[in-house]
């Protein structure tokens, strides 16, 4: 192992508005980078193959499954995770709506849903139920049946106006 050890790569990236330099193994995912290198664990692993959306993050304005992106690909990018949604002044309207509408049960999928829903509202401030379901189709929730999640996103969209 030691003779063919792969060298870590220096990556300069911006996570939730904070520019940082990190060293990552070239073979690890952005998900692992966030959780193990940066040390923020709000982004969750549910499947590690891009099918559950628990690791959804916003990468330069696009929502992606961070398990399908390499950590080194964060170079020069702007990354937003669930940890970046609330400000010291308070929760994002989506976070508040999720609480008020009981849109989470176990909560493991919640960070991914919040990041996806935020991207939706950033793009379409007043989405229909169908558009909400379309945008959230990449995020699995096993607890809620999605009903209250859809309602929470609708509520946040109305209140953001």
């Amino acid at each position: 192992m030691s003779e063919n050890k792969v060298k870590k790569v220096a990556v300069n990236t911006t996570i939730n508005g904070e520019e940082m330099d990190i060293l990552v193994d070239p073979y690890i995912s952005l998900l692992e980078t966030l959780r193990e290198v940066v040390g923020i664990t709000g982004t969750k692993e549910g499947c590690n193959d891009g099918n559950c959306g628990a690791c959804t993050i916003n990468l330069d304005g696009r929502i992606v499954d961070s398990c399908l992106v390499l950590g080194v690909e964060a170079e020069g990018k702007n990354i937003e995770t669930v940890e970046g949604m609330a400000t010291p002044d308070g929760l994002h309207p989506l976070q508040q709506a999720f609480l008020e509408e009981a849109a989470l049960q176990c909560g493991i999928c919640t960070p991914g849903f919040l990041v996806s829903a935020k991207a939706l509202l950033d793009n379409e401030p007043d989405p229909s139920e169908e558009r909400i379901r379309h945008w959230l189709a990449g995020n699995l929730c096993r607890c809620t049946g999605y009903d209250k999640i859809v309602k929470a996103v609708t509520k946040a969209s109305k209140e953001s106006k």
Binding site: I40, E83, L99, L104, I108
Partner: peptide, 23 residues
């Protein structure tokens, strides 16, 4: 009544620590 759950804030901000989050 329908109060906000006590653990809700940790769960919408990513602070809640699940099984794999422990270090």
């Amino acid at each position: 009544t329908r109060p906000i759950r006590h653990d809700g804030y940790d769960k919408v901000t990513g602070r809640a620590q699940y099984g794999a989050d422990i270090k």
